[in-house]
Protein backbone atom coordinates (compact mmCIF):
# COMPACT_ATOMS: atom_id res chain seq x y z
CA UNK A 1 0.00 0.00 0.00
CA UNK A 2 2.76 2.37 1.04
CA UNK A 3 4.51 1.63 -2.24
CA UNK A 4 1.43 2.43 -4.27
CA UNK A 5 1.04 5.79 -2.53
CA UNK A 6 4.75 6.45 -3.01
CA UNK A 7 4.41 5.63 -6.67
CA UNK A 8 1.60 8.14 -7.06
CA UNK A 9 3.49 10.86 -5.20
CA UNK A 10 6.69 10.26 -7.15
CA UNK A 11 4.89 10.33 -10.49
CA UNK A 12 2.29 12.96 -9.71
CA UNK A 13 3.50 15.28 -12.47
CA UNK A 14 3.40 12.58 -15.08
CA UNK A 15 0.00 11.28 -13.97
CA UNK A 16 -1.48 14.77 -13.93
CA UNK A 17 -0.02 15.42 -17.37
CA UNK A 18 -1.44 12.15 -18.71
CA UNK A 19 -4.87 12.88 -17.29
CA UNK A 20 -5.05 16.42 -18.68
CA UNK A 21 -3.51 15.45 -22.03
CA UNK A 22 -6.06 12.71 -22.64
CA UNK A 23 -8.84 15.01 -21.46
CA UNK A 24 -7.71 17.62 -24.00
CA UNK A 25 -7.54 15.04 -26.80
CA UNK A 26 -11.00 13.71 -26.01
CA UNK A 27 -12.41 17.25 -26.00
CA UNK A 28 -10.86 17.98 -29.38
CA UNK A 29 -12.23 14.72 -30.79
CA UNK A 30 -15.68 15.63 -29.54
CA UNK A 31 -15.35 19.00 -31.26
CA UNK A 32 -14.82 17.19 -34.56
CA UNK A 33 -18.07 15.30 -34.23
CA UNK A 34 -19.80 18.55 -33.35
CA UNK A 35 -20.92 17.32 -29.94
CA UNK A 36 -18.83 19.50 -27.71
CA UNK A 37 -20.05 20.95 -24.47
CA UNK A 38 -21.53 24.41 -24.36
CA UNK A 39 -18.95 26.02 -22.12
CA UNK A 40 -16.08 25.43 -24.50
CA UNK A 41 -17.90 26.95 -27.47
CA UNK A 42 -17.16 30.61 -28.16
CA UNK A 43 -20.85 31.46 -27.76
CA UNK A 44 -20.38 31.65 -23.99
CA UNK A 45 -20.82 34.94 -22.20
CA UNK A 46 -17.12 35.75 -21.69
CA UNK A 47 -15.67 35.10 -25.12
CA UNK A 48 -18.86 36.16 -26.90
CA UNK A 49 -18.89 39.41 -24.94
CA UNK A 50 -15.23 40.12 -25.67
CA UNK A 51 -15.64 39.39 -29.37
CA UNK A 52 -18.73 41.61 -29.53
CA UNK A 53 -16.84 44.52 -27.92
CA UNK A 54 -13.88 44.18 -30.28
CA UNK A 55 -16.12 43.92 -33.34
CA UNK A 56 -18.01 46.98 -32.16
CA UNK A 57 -14.80 49.00 -32.15
CA UNK A 58 -13.46 47.47 -35.36
CA UNK A 59 -16.70 48.04 -37.26
CA UNK A 60 -16.16 51.82 -37.13
CA UNK A 61 -13.15 51.47 -39.38
CA UNK A 62 -15.06 49.76 -42.17
CA UNK A 63 -18.34 51.71 -41.91
CA UNK A 64 -17.95 53.33 -45.31
CA UNK A 65 -17.31 50.08 -47.13
CA UNK A 66 -20.14 48.24 -45.30
CA UNK A 67 -22.54 51.05 -46.13
CA UNK A 68 -21.60 50.81 -49.80
CA UNK A 69 -22.35 47.09 -49.77
CA UNK A 70 -25.70 47.57 -48.06
CA UNK A 71 -26.63 50.40 -50.44
CA UNK A 72 -25.85 48.17 -53.42
CA UNK A 73 -27.99 45.43 -51.91
CA UNK A 74 -30.79 47.94 -51.42
CA UNK A 75 -30.53 49.09 -55.01
CA UNK A 76 -30.79 45.52 -56.25
CA UNK A 77 -33.86 44.85 -54.12
CA UNK A 78 -35.51 48.09 -55.25
CA UNK A 79 -34.96 47.20 -58.89
CA UNK A 80 -36.41 43.74 -58.27
CA UNK A 81 -39.42 45.20 -56.45
CA UNK A 82 -40.05 47.51 -59.37
CA UNK A 83 -40.00 44.55 -61.75
CA UNK A 84 -42.54 42.65 -59.65
CA UNK A 85 -44.92 45.62 -59.71
CA UNK A 86 -44.96 45.73 -63.47
CA UNK A 87 -45.15 42.06 -64.22
CA UNK A 88 -46.05 39.22 -61.93
CA UNK A 89 -45.10 36.26 -64.03
CA UNK A 90 -43.05 33.71 -62.15
CA UNK A 91 -40.43 33.84 -64.85
CA UNK A 92 -39.56 37.46 -64.08
CA UNK A 93 -39.39 36.68 -60.40
CA UNK A 94 -36.94 33.90 -60.86
CA UNK A 95 -34.81 36.07 -63.13
CA UNK A 96 -34.82 38.81 -60.51
CA UNK A 97 -33.57 36.27 -57.97
CA UNK A 98 -36.63 36.68 -55.81
CA UNK A 99 -37.94 33.14 -56.11
CA UNK A 100 -36.74 32.19 -52.60
CA UNK A 101 -38.81 35.01 -51.13
CA UNK A 102 -41.90 33.88 -53.00
CA UNK A 103 -41.35 30.22 -52.34
CA UNK A 104 -41.59 30.53 -48.59
CA UNK A 105 -43.23 33.87 -48.06
CA UNK A 106 -43.19 33.63 -44.29
CA UNK A 107 -39.51 32.76 -44.00
CA UNK A 108 -38.31 34.24 -40.71
CA UNK A 109 -35.17 36.34 -40.99
CA UNK A 110 -32.98 37.59 -38.13
CA UNK A 111 -30.44 40.25 -38.94
CA UNK A 112 -27.08 39.68 -37.18
CA UNK A 113 -23.35 40.39 -37.22
CA UNK A 114 -20.41 38.03 -37.35
CA UNK A 115 -18.25 38.83 -34.34
CA UNK A 116 -15.60 36.17 -34.86
CA UNK A 117 -14.75 34.46 -38.10
CA UNK A 118 -12.01 31.92 -38.70
CA UNK A 119 -11.00 30.33 -41.97
CA UNK A 120 -7.49 28.96 -41.49
CA UNK A 121 -8.51 25.76 -39.70
CA UNK A 122 -10.16 22.58 -40.98
CA UNK A 123 -13.23 23.00 -38.78
CA UNK A 124 -14.00 26.66 -39.12
CA UNK A 125 -16.77 28.42 -37.21
CA UNK A 126 -18.50 31.78 -37.10
CA UNK A 127 -19.50 33.42 -33.82
CA UNK A 128 -22.61 35.56 -34.21
CA UNK A 129 -24.04 38.24 -31.90
CA UNK A 130 -27.62 36.91 -31.65
CA UNK A 131 -28.76 34.15 -29.31
CA UNK A 132 -31.73 32.22 -27.99
CA UNK A 133 -33.26 35.40 -26.53
CA UNK A 134 -33.37 36.86 -30.05
CA UNK A 135 -35.10 33.77 -31.39
CA UNK A 136 -32.08 31.91 -32.75
CA UNK A 137 -32.45 28.14 -32.82
CA UNK A 138 -30.25 25.21 -33.74
CA UNK A 139 -30.02 24.35 -37.46
CA UNK A 140 -30.96 27.77 -38.72
CA UNK A 141 -29.18 28.76 -41.93
CA UNK A 142 -26.68 31.63 -42.02
CA UNK A 143 -26.60 33.57 -45.30
CA UNK A 144 -25.48 36.86 -46.75
CA UNK A 145 -27.50 38.52 -49.48
CA UNK A 146 -25.43 36.81 -52.14
CA UNK A 147 -24.47 33.47 -50.66
CA UNK A 148 -24.80 30.68 -48.14
CA UNK A 149 -22.38 30.91 -45.18
CA UNK A 150 -23.15 28.19 -42.64
CA UNK A 151 -25.50 26.46 -40.22
CA UNK A 152 -26.10 27.26 -36.52
CA UNK A 153 -24.71 24.53 -34.27
CA UNK A 154 -24.58 26.11 -30.79
CA UNK A 155 -26.90 28.63 -29.20
CA UNK A 156 -26.46 30.44 -25.88
CA UNK A 157 -28.66 33.22 -24.50
CA UNK A 158 -26.93 36.08 -26.32
CA UNK A 159 -24.66 34.48 -28.92
CA UNK A 160 -24.51 31.56 -31.28
CA UNK A 161 -21.88 29.60 -33.18
CA UNK A 162 -22.32 28.47 -36.76
CA UNK A 163 -20.47 25.78 -38.62
CA UNK A 164 -18.97 27.67 -41.55
CA UNK A 165 -19.20 26.47 -45.14
CA UNK A 166 -15.41 26.24 -44.75
CA UNK A 167 -15.71 23.30 -42.37
CA UNK A 168 -14.89 19.77 -43.42
CA UNK A 169 -18.11 18.60 -41.71
CA UNK A 170 -20.23 20.96 -43.78
CA UNK A 171 -22.72 19.30 -46.19
CA UNK A 172 -25.08 21.51 -48.16
CA UNK A 173 -27.39 20.23 -50.86
CA UNK A 174 -27.24 22.48 -53.91
CA UNK A 175 -28.48 22.32 -57.47
CA UNK A 176 -27.70 23.99 -60.74
CA UNK A 177 -29.86 27.03 -61.41
CA UNK A 178 -30.71 25.66 -64.86
CA UNK A 179 -31.67 22.09 -64.05
CA UNK A 180 -32.86 20.05 -61.10
CA UNK A 181 -29.78 17.81 -60.77
CA UNK A 182 -28.56 18.16 -57.22
CA UNK A 183 -25.37 17.29 -55.37
CA UNK A 184 -23.63 17.79 -52.03
CA UNK A 185 -21.38 20.78 -51.52
CA UNK A 186 -18.38 20.04 -49.29
CA UNK A 187 -15.10 21.77 -48.41
CA UNK A 188 -11.88 19.91 -49.25
CA UNK A 189 -10.12 21.79 -46.44
CA UNK A 190 -7.47 23.90 -48.10
CA UNK A 191 -8.49 26.97 -50.12
CA UNK A 192 -10.86 29.59 -48.66
CA UNK A 193 -12.35 30.40 -52.07
CA UNK A 194 -12.95 26.91 -53.34
CA UNK A 195 -15.67 24.39 -52.51
CA UNK A 196 -16.29 21.00 -54.06
CA UNK A 197 -19.62 19.85 -55.43
CA UNK A 198 -19.89 16.07 -55.49
CA UNK A 199 -22.54 13.53 -56.44
CA UNK A 200 -23.71 15.38 -59.56
CA UNK A 201 -24.39 12.65 -62.15
CA UNK A 202 -22.37 12.75 -65.35
CA UNK A 203 -25.42 13.30 -67.54
CA UNK A 204 -26.26 16.60 -65.84
CA UNK A 205 -25.93 19.57 -68.20
CA UNK A 206 -23.48 21.69 -66.26
CA UNK A 207 -20.69 23.94 -67.49
CA UNK A 208 -18.13 26.32 -66.00
CA UNK A 209 -19.76 29.65 -65.23
CA UNK A 210 -23.10 28.11 -64.19
CA UNK A 211 -24.69 29.46 -61.03
CA UNK A 212 -25.55 27.14 -58.17
CA UNK A 213 -28.40 27.64 -55.73
CA UNK A 214 -29.66 25.82 -52.65
CA UNK A 215 -31.96 22.94 -53.35
CA UNK A 216 -34.50 23.31 -50.58
CA UNK A 217 -34.61 19.57 -49.90
CA UNK A 218 -32.98 20.07 -46.52
CA UNK A 219 -34.90 21.97 -43.88
CA UNK A 220 -32.10 24.49 -43.38
CA UNK A 221 -32.07 26.71 -46.45
CA UNK A 222 -35.03 27.77 -48.61
CA UNK A 223 -35.02 26.76 -52.25
CA UNK A 224 -33.04 28.92 -54.66
CA UNK A 225 -30.71 30.87 -52.37
CA UNK A 226 -27.50 31.69 -54.32
CA UNK A 227 -24.37 29.72 -53.42
CA UNK A 228 -21.62 30.16 -55.96
CA UNK A 229 -20.34 29.65 -59.44
CA UNK A 230 -18.87 26.61 -61.18
CA UNK A 231 -15.24 27.27 -62.07
CA UNK A 232 -14.00 23.87 -63.19
CA UNK A 233 -15.39 20.41 -63.86
CA UNK A 234 -13.34 17.28 -63.39
CA UNK A 235 -14.61 14.24 -65.22
CA UNK A 236 -12.82 11.18 -63.83
CA UNK A 237 -13.45 8.16 -66.04
CA UNK A 238 -13.67 5.73 -63.13
CA UNK A 239 -16.52 7.55 -61.40
CA UNK A 240 -20.21 7.93 -62.09
CA UNK A 241 -20.20 11.41 -60.68
CA UNK A 242 -18.53 14.67 -61.60
CA UNK A 243 -16.20 16.57 -59.27
CA UNK A 244 -17.08 20.21 -59.64
CA UNK A 245 -15.02 23.04 -58.21
CA UNK A 246 -17.14 25.94 -57.02
CA UNK A 247 -16.27 29.51 -56.09
CA UNK A 248 -18.63 30.87 -53.40
CA UNK A 249 -20.15 34.27 -54.22
CA UNK A 250 -19.28 35.61 -50.76
CA UNK A 251 -15.73 36.36 -49.64
CA UNK A 252 -15.62 34.09 -46.58
CA UNK A 253 -12.69 36.02 -45.10
CA UNK A 254 -14.65 39.28 -44.85
CA UNK A 255 -18.03 38.80 -43.17
CA UNK A 256 -20.01 41.27 -41.09
CA UNK A 257 -23.72 41.69 -41.92
CA UNK A 258 -25.45 38.31 -42.11
CA UNK A 259 -29.00 36.97 -41.94
CA UNK A 260 -30.21 33.94 -40.01
CA UNK A 261 -33.02 32.13 -41.79
CA UNK A 262 -35.60 29.74 -40.51
CA UNK A 263 -38.11 28.00 -42.71
CA UNK A 264 -41.40 27.97 -40.81
CA UNK A 265 -42.16 24.52 -42.12
CA UNK A 266 -38.78 23.15 -40.92
CA UNK A 267 -40.16 21.91 -37.61
CA UNK A 268 -43.06 20.12 -39.28
CA UNK A 269 -40.88 18.46 -41.92
CA UNK A 270 -38.44 17.28 -39.27
CA UNK A 271 -41.19 15.84 -37.09
CA UNK A 272 -42.69 14.06 -40.07
CA UNK A 273 -39.34 12.58 -41.03
CA UNK A 274 -38.75 11.45 -37.46
CA UNK A 275 -42.07 9.62 -37.26
CA UNK A 276 -41.22 7.88 -40.52
CA UNK A 277 -37.88 6.59 -39.22
CA UNK A 278 -39.64 5.41 -36.05
CA UNK A 279 -42.10 3.38 -38.07
CA UNK A 280 -39.37 1.82 -40.16
Amino acid sequence: MQQIIDFFIRNKNFLLFLLLFSFGISLSQKAHSGLYTRNIASSNRISGGIFAQITDIKSYFSLKQRNETLALENARLLAAKHKIKHSDSKDTLSRAGLMPLLDSSNLSVIQAHVINNNYHKRKNTLTIDKGALDGVEMDMGVVSSDGVLGVITHVSDHYCVAQSVLNTNSRIIVKSKKSNHFGTLIWPGDKVDELLLTEIPKIAPIAPGDSLVTDGKSTIFPRGWPVGQVIDIEDAAAQDYLDIRVRPHTDMTDLYHVYLLQRPEAQEIRELENTMTDEL
Binding site: L20, S26, L27, S28, Q29, I40, A41, F51
Partner: peptide
Protein backbone atom coordinates in the same frame (compact mmCIF):
# COMPACT_ATOMS: atom_id res chain seq x y z
CA UNK B 1 -9.72 26.72 -27.22
CA UNK B 2 -12.80 28.45 -25.89
CA UNK B 3 -12.17 31.47 -28.10
CA UNK B 4 -11.30 29.36 -31.13
CA UNK B 5 -13.95 26.63 -30.93
CA UNK B 6 -11.26 23.97 -31.19
CA UNK B 7 -12.50 21.74 -28.36
CA UNK B 8 -9.32 20.79 -26.51
CA UNK B 9 -6.59 20.87 -29.15
CA UNK B 10 -4.76 23.87 -27.66
CA UNK B 11 -5.15 22.47 -24.14
CA UNK B 12 -3.60 19.12 -25.12
CA UNK B 13 -0.72 20.74 -27.02
CA UNK B 14 -0.02 23.22 -24.22
CA UNK B 15 -0.02 20.58 -21.47
Amino acid sequence: DMFNDTGGAHAAAAV
